[in-house]
């Protein structure tokens, strides 16, 4: 059921996958690439880091506005 032969992807590729996931948009060829290379651990860690970055970014913007 799961593919154990994944080589793992670069940080950049994980970041791209996570950002497009947050937007909800992904090109089909990129998706196939992700499916071939990304491991579940990479996606989960990437997603958590993405969520933290999302919160920190909004907080940063909000603080600039309020100041």
């Amino acid at each position: 059921m799961t593919n154990n032969n994944k080589s793992g992807a670069s940080v950049f590729q994980v970041a791209k996958a996570v950002i497009s996931a947050f937007m909800g948009i992904r090109k089909k060829s990129d998706l196939e690439n992700d499916a071939a290379n990304l491991t579940p651990a990479q996606v989960i860690i990437g997603g958590i880091i993405g969520a933290i970055l999302f919160v920190v970014t909004i907080l940063f913007i909000v603080n600039i506005i309020v100041d």
Partner: peptide, 16 residues
């Protein structure tokens, strides 16, 4: 795939 990603994204955002 966008639908899957969007669902996951909504789930994460729903917590903040």
């Amino acid at each position: 795939s966008s639908m899957v990603y969007a669902t996951a994204s909504i789930a994460i955002l729903s917590c903040v």
